[in-house]
Computed example of a mutant assay.
Amino acid sequence: MSGEGATRPLAIICGGGAFPLEVARAAAATGASPFLVGLVGASDPGVEAFPHVWLHLGQVGKLFAELAARGIAEVALVGALTRPEFADLRFDWGALKRAPELAKAFRGGDNRLLSGIAAVFEGEGFKVVGAHEIAPQLVASLGALGARVAPASAEMDIQTGAATIAALSPFDAGQGVVVAEGRILAIEAAEGTDAMLARVAEMRASRRLKMTGPAGVFVKAPKRGQDLRLDMPAIGPRTIAAAIEAQLLGIAVVAGSVLIAERESTLRAADAAGLFITGFVP
């Protein structure tokens, strides 16, 4: 976001965690005026440090009214959010008027859902922007990101992981995979990154995976054709903690296509644990 866009008000629809707040601070530093939309039961209470409103999922009409009242033209969807069931949403009248569009978006994987939600915003005249456009300094660069360098022996696992995510892209599956010595140990699906890495940790603890010492690489990459404005892959301190529990060698992310939340603390934790974090090109 630059030029004229940097001076206009910006709405950030906040998922869970501290990452939406980090993006909001980055937006403010560029001269933008972030307005945060907190989702009840999901967003961090820190949204209240900014101009904000709290909404329940399904209050679409109230959301658009709040944005219109503030002259907001740009919207970003930032942070993790547990996918709700369509029947559980608390629709207001504005949502009911758009129910056919919303129901269609829910028929499929997360990418289809997010694309459908973006289409609803765009249909109302909003421009949807990505976290990487607001805070490009959070995007992973090429090569070693921390103090540890990925060993040459990890290259095959990194490329195997990237190829696996690309091959699964038509099925709108997850954005992560764990590979050790060419063997796929886990693939991220609806459970998300943390739960997938916890499965690896449990398999190692129970000796279902009989490996000695640190082994394996967690590869994080966008799905082929994924709209990075809506769901750019990200890692953060929780990812590092989960990778440590899973006794991995390191983490590989696609340079230019993965965000690093809380970058300083993330890299510091990885360095302390002896984990490498590297940006690569598939």
Score class of each variant (00 low, 15 high):
Ala186Leu: 12
Ala87Ile: 01
Phe19Met: 02
Ala24Tyr: 00
Val129Glu: 06
Thr212Met: 14
Phe50Asn: 07
Ser2Met: 11
Leu185Thr: 10
Val219Tyr: 04
Ala27Val: 08
Pro170Gly: 13
Met211Pro: 01
Gly236Glu: 00
Val40Ala: 12
Leu21Cys: 14
Ala119Gly: 11
Ala144Trp: 13
Gly192Ser: 06
Ala103Lys: 15
Gly182Phe: 12
Thr160Pro: 03
Val75Trp: 09
Ala198Cys: 10
Ala69Phe: 14
Ala135Thr: 10
Thr30Asn: 00
Ala105Tyr: 03
Arg70Pro: 02
Glu4Val: 13
Glu74Arg: 15
Ala201Cys: 06
Arg229Gly: 05
Leu102Val: 13
Pro222Ala: 04
Ala189Cys: 11
Val179Pro: 03
Asp172Glu: 14
Gly58Met: 06
Ala150Tyr: 12
Ile251Pro: 02
Gly3Ser: 05
Val149Cys: 06
Leu185Pro: 04
Ala65Asn: 11
Phe218Ala: 12
Asp44Tyr: 01
Gly256Met: 09
Ala147Phe: 10
Arg268Met: 05
Pro84Thr: 08
Thr7Ser: 13
Ala135Tyr: 14
Val219Glu: 03
Leu197Met: 12
Gly216Cys: 07
Leu55Glu: 10
Val258Gln: 11
Ala80Arg: 05
Pro233Val: 01
Ala131Leu: 00
Gly79Asp: 09
Ala180Lys: 11
Pro282Asn: 05
Ala49Leu: 15
Thr82His: 13
Val179Met: 09
Arg107Cys: 07
Val60Gly: 06
Gly143Val: 07
Leu185Lys: 07
Ala26Leu: 08
Asp157Met: 12
Ser141Ile: 00
Phe35Ile: 12
Lys210Ala: 11
Leu113Tyr: 13
Gly5Leu: 13
Ile117Leu: 15
Glu264Val: 07
Ala163Cys: 11
Thr82Cys: 07
Ala246Ile: 06
Val178Ser: 02
Leu89Ile: 02
Met196Gly: 01
Leu230Tyr: 00
Gly123Cys: 07
Arg238Tyr: 11
Asp227Tyr: 01
Arg208His: 12
Thr212Leu: 14
Ala270Arg: 02
